[in-house]
């Protein structure tokens, strides 16, 4: 349904034809982006691309500073995530949970204190086999084939919350109320959401398009979050996976999460 040459000429009539005769309509061309109109940071000319994005979280670095929430703040400010101040209406893209909840079922009585008290950063796992996209009745959430990001279309979501029910990681939030009054400082370059739709982490796909790393990765003072292409053997994430023993959340469910944790 893109506005292509033919459609554009059809609707805009003779003037457009005259214009076409003069300069040639180049509506679809993407190749030479010479004079991109004012991106605020980064550039669309140098996007970050991958066959499959993945993240490795080094918990030993993450727990260095107790109570650190830099990644959460960076993400939530960047994406206009509201703060309702209560768990009922809560919306979160990235948050922290105690080990026993993050790795539900893998804790035990004699686990080291260090691990027991680790606050694990959690976000959408961008599963290779996501159950949320399977249940969506409108394709409002889907896995992007080009790089594996589980996307959200807030224009299309009907708010049935089936995806929230299907996600085994609690990664999805629903806008129970109008979020706008609860956003402390609105970032003008990113939309807010409307009440009645589901939202979640999108691996900062809008930043990747401009060649920027995800906000949480960029912000982490301990450099605990590594982000890269899982299918590139030379990538940082692959190097970390080679060198360390890593675990994923609920691997037995067959969702193939793309967030790996070094305990």
């Amino acid at each position: 349904m893109s506005i292509d040459r033919r459609k554009f000429m059809k609707v805009s009539g003779l003037t457009a034809l005259a214009l076409a005769g003069g300069k040639g309509i180049n509506v679809l061309a993407q190749e030479d982006s010479t004079s991109v109109a004012a991106p605020k940071t980064g550039s669309f000319e140098t996007p970050l691309t991958a066959k499959r994005w993945a993240m490795v979280c080094d918990l030993s670095k993450c727990r260095e500073k107790e109570g650190c929430d830099v990644c959460i703040k960076a993400c939530h400010e960047r994406h206009n995530v509201p703060d309702f101040g209560n768990p009922k209406d809560e919306i979160k893209w990235i948050w922290k949970e105690h080990f026993e909840h993050a790795f539900h079922g893998q804790e035990h009585e004699y686990i080291t204190d260090e691990i027991r008290h680790t606050n694990v950063p959690l976000l959408c796992n961008h599963c290779d086999n996501p159950p949320c996209t399977r249940v969506c009745p409108t394709e409002a959430t889907w896995k992007r084939e080009s790089d594996g990001i589980v996307m959200m279309d807030w224009h299309r979501c009907i708010g049935c919350r089936y995806c929230v029910v299907a996600c085994p990681y609690g990664s999805r939030s629903f806008n129970w109320r109008d979020p706008r009054p609860h956003i402390e400082k609105i970032d003008e370059s990113f939309p807010t959401r409307t009440r009645g739709v589901v939202e979640k982490c999108t691996f900062c796909e809008e930043r990747l398009a401009k060649g920027l790393l995800p906000a949480c990765v960029e912000a982490c003072p301990a450099k605990a979050l590594a982000f890269g292409d899982l299918e590139d053997p030379e990538s940082e994430v692959r190097a970390l996976l080679r060198e360390h023993f890593t675990i994923r959340r609920r691997p037995e469910l067959g969702t193939a999460p793309e967030i790996f944790y070094i305990v």
């Binding site: 009745p137 409108t138 409002a140 299309r156 979501c157 009907i158 708010g159 049935c160 919350r161 629903f174 806008n175 409307t194 009440r195 009645g196 739709v197 589901v198």
Partner: peptide, 10 residues
Amino acid sequence: MGQPFRITNV
């Protein structure tokens, strides 16, 4: 439904 008037999307 959160967005009842989008039901036609189904």
